[in-house]
Nucleic acid binder design. Structure first.
Length: 425
RNA sequence: GGAGAGAUGGCCGAGCUGGUUGAAGGCGCUCGCCUGCUAAGCGAGUGUAGGGCUAAAACCUUACCGGGGGUUCGAAUCCCCCUCUCUCCGCCA
C-alpha cells in the first residue's frame, strides 16, 4: 500500500508509474475522497473537543453538587452531530482504503519501461548449455520412462495439474528441499521456519494477495482460511503488527512449504509436465531489512538463490523485470530462468523482489533504530530459493543421458545415499 | 465439541460500584547528579497513529486499554457480537 500523503504530494509520479505498468486508476476520485476526509476530520474533531471539555465540566459540577442539566441537554445535540459525521467519516475512510489497496507499488527508478515478458532485459547468464548427441526429451517423457513421475494418476487422484512422484522421483524432490535448506541455513545465514500452510485473510492482505487476486487462491470456505500460494505469505506475516528492534535487523528467514495456486488465467499454458501445477514445493527466502540497505540486500538475495543452481551446475540466466511484467507489490524483481534442453527454452525458477515498504505498510511491520528514534516501516524482500519441482525437472532435462537414465548432480548425491544415476530399473 | 477464566503501554501489573487515568506501582530504557572494589542510590524523562499550524520544530487537537458494534452528556470501566490465550472434560495424529 502506498502512503496517502505520498500520493497527495507526488501525484504526477504515481500516475505516470501506474500507467507505465499498464494500469488506469481513478486518481481524481482518490484525491477527492482524501480531501473530503480531511475536511470531515477537522469538523468532527472540533465537536469532539467541545464534547470532551463540557463532559469534564459536567463531572466537576456533579462532584460539587451543582446543576448540570443545561450542559447535558446541549451535549446531547453535539453528540448526535458527532455520530452522523463519524458515520460519514467511517464510510469515507473505508472507500479510500479500498482504493488504496488496489494501487500497485511504485517501481524502482532502474526498472525499464516495457509491456511484458519479451521486454525484460537479460542481465546475466551462467553455465554451459549442454550439447546432446541425441534429441533431448522433455522431462515428462523422462519421468514417465523412469517411472518416477506419474501424471495420469495424479489427475486420477485429484485432477488436472496434480502429479504423483514415485520412488527416486519422490526422493529426489525431498533431497532437493533438504539441500536447499541446508545451503541457506548453513552458508547464507538464514533461520529456518516451518510455517502454517493455511493463513487468514489479514495475512493475505498484508503481503498483497488480497483483495485483488482472490481468484488465484484456494480458499477453505467453512473456516475462511486460504491455502498459501507461497511461503512469502506466512513468513512475512511473522512480524505483522510488530515493532522490530533495530538491533535485530536484518532478519533472514528461509522456509520450505508446498504452494497452492489456482493458476487462473493460464488455461492451455504449460499443460504438460511439472512446470505449472496447482500444488508445488518451494524453498523461500524472506528478509526484513532497514530501508537504506534494501537494494544491496536484493543483490545478495539474488546471489543466494543463484548459488543453488551453481552448486547443481544447471545453466541459467537472470532477467530484470520491466514495468509491464513487474508484480503488483514489487518495486523491483529479478527472475532467474533455467535452461530446459528438452523444451529448448528458459523457464522461471526464482523470482527475487524488493517490496520496499509496500508490504510493511499493509502489514504494519515497523522497526525502531534505537531507543530514541521514531518507528519506521521496514523493507521486505523475498525470493524463491528455489522452486523445487522446477529444479527437479531442470535436472531431468539437463542431466539426461542417451540411454534414458539421468545422472544425479554431485552436490545432491550425499542427500540420496550416494546414488549417482537414476536408471530404468 | 462441553464448562470455566482471561486479553491493559517495550515487559510485569493495578484500575473494572462510569467523570482530574494516556492510564497507579514496578521492571526496562534515555539523560543528569552523587558515589566509586565488580554494585547501588537520587532526580527528570520515556507509547502509537491521524489531522491542523509550521521552513522545520514547538504547539493545538482527535483516536487508541484484543477487534467490531451499542448504552450514556461522558466508557479501560456497563451491554452485545467476534477473535485469540489459558485451565478442566471429551475426541484425536
Amino acid at each position: 500500500m502506498l502512503d496517502i500523503k505520498f500520493i497527495r504530494e507526488h501525484l504526477d509520479l504515481v500516475k505516470s508509474k501506474c500507467s507505465q505498468r499498464g494500469l488506469k486508476l481513478n486518481f481524481d476520485l482518490i484525491t477527492k475522497i482524501d480531501s473530503e476526509r480531511r475536511n470531515l476530520l477537522g469538523k468532527v474533531e472540533a465537536l469532539k473537543y467541545e464534547r470532551n471539555t463540557v463532559s469534564d465540566k459536567v463531572g466537576k459540577l456533579k462532584r460539587e453538587g451543582k446543576d448540570f442539566r443545561d450542559e447535558i441537554a446541549e451535549m446531547k445535540k453535539v453528540s448526535q452531530e458527532i455520530k452522523q459525521l463519524d458515520q460519514l467519516l467511517h464510510d469515507n475512510e473505508n472507500s479510500l482504503e479500498q482504493l488504496l489497496l488496489e494501487i500497485p507499488n511504485i517501481p524502482h527508478h532502474s526498472v525499464k519501461v516495457g509491456e511484458g515478458e519479451a521486454d525484460n532485459p537479460e542481465i546475466k547468464r551462467w553455465g554451459e548449455i549442454p550439447r546432446f548427441d541425441f534429441t533431448p526429451l522433455p522431462h515428462w517423457d523422462i519421468g514417465e520412462n523412469l517411472d518416477i513421475l506419474d501424471f495420469a494418476r495424479g489427475s486420477k487422484i485429484t485432477g488436472a495439474r496434480f502429479t504423483l512422484y514415485k520412488g527416486l522421483g519422490a526422493q529426489l524432490e525431498r533431497s532437493l528441499i533438504n539441500f536447499m535448506l541446508d545451503l541457506h541455513t548453513q552458508q547464507h545465514n538464514y533461520t529456518e521456519i516451518l510455517p502454517p500452510f493455511m493463513v487468514n485473510k489479514e495475512s493475505m492482505m498484508g503481503t498483497g494477495q488480497l483483495p485483488k487476486f482472490e481468484e488465484d487462491l484456494f480458499k477453505l470456505e467453512d473456516v475462511g482460511y486460504y491455502l498459501i500460494p507461497t511461503a512469502e505469505v506466512p513468513v512475512t506475516n511473522i512480524h505483522r503488527n510488530e515493532i522490530i528492534p533495530g538491533t535485530s535487523l536484518p532478519l533472514y528467514y528461509t522456509a520450505y512449504t508446498p504452494c497452492f495456486r489456482k493458476e487462473a488465467g493460464s488455461y492451455g499454458k504449460d499443460t504438460k509436465g511439472l512446470v505449472r501445477q496447482h500444488q508445488f514445493n518451494k524453498v523461500e527466502l524472506v528478509k526484513f531489512v532497514i530501508p537504506e540497505t534494501s537494494y544491496d540486500e536484493l543483490e545478495k538475495l539474488l546471489l543466494n538463490a543463484e548459488e543453488v543452481l551453481k552448486k547443481l551446475n544447471i545453466p541459467y540466466r537472470v532477467v530484470d523485470l520491466c514495468m509491464g511484467d513487474l508484480g503488483f507489490s514489487s518495486s523491483k524483481t529479478y527472475d532467474i530462468e533455467v535452461w530446459l534442453p528438452g523444451q529448448n527454452r528458459y523457464v522461471e525458477i526464482s523470482s527475487c523482489s524488493n517490496f520496499e515498504e509496500f508490504q510493511a505498510r499493509r502489514a504494519n511491520i515497523r522497526y525502531r533504530k534505537d531507543n530514541k528514534s521514531k518507528t519506521k516501516f521496514v523493507h521486505t524482500l523475498n525470493g524463491s530459493g528455489l522452486a523445487v519441482g522446477r529444479t527437479l525437472l531442470a535436472i531431468l532435462e539437463n542431466y539426461q543421458q542417451e540411454d534414458g537414465s539421468v545422472v544425479i548432480p554431485e552436490a545432491l548425491r550425499p542427500y540420496l545415499g550416494g546414488i549417482e544415476r537414476i536408471t530404468k530399473d
